[in-house]
Amino acid sequence: MERRGRRGTSLFELLLVACVLSLSLAPLFYVFKLSRPPERESELEFTATLLAHHVLERIVAQKYANPESLPSMTSEEPIVVTPEGYRVVSEYFRNFLGKDLGLEENDNPKLYWALKPFTCQVDTYYLDDFLYKVIVYISYEELGRKKRVFLERLLAHHPPQPILEIGK
């Protein structure tokens, strides 16, 4: 009886197995990625969230004091006075610790340097049903990448009543 000899694997079979292996690595990598521990909230991200909260609370306080008031849209602006002085401090940070035009280094150096990396931008939108949407963006740079934290809030907005002409 002739015994059948053991046959080696051909190149085609090797490539086929490699393909199957590659496909199986995709879900495996996904599982590996999922198993990574979550990234901790960085100091900058936490501070940015507090700053965005400050802006929203300031808007809410203005709204309580004057229900007709609406926050204005602003471009990306620094939140403390920059040494160059060319960029205007965000209006939401001008009245800051007794200052009228923003915090300067001499006022509180630790706080100044901690807040200097951040910029503030406010976007506003009119929505249906007399709603006004405010989005506060606080931007900063971390590990060479620009990041930003945003908080948003809906405000009630009633447009002024038209003045009716007498006699019509």
Binding site: E43, L44, F46, T47, L50, L51, H53, H54, E57, R58, V60, A61, Y64, K110, L111, A114, L115
Partner: peptide, 13 residues
């Protein structure tokens, strides 16, 4: 000096 400061505001609701 390496720890982050805390700064925020709250409205009286």
């Amino acid at each position: 000096s390496f720890a982050p400061p805390f700064f925020t505001s709250f409205a009286l609701r």
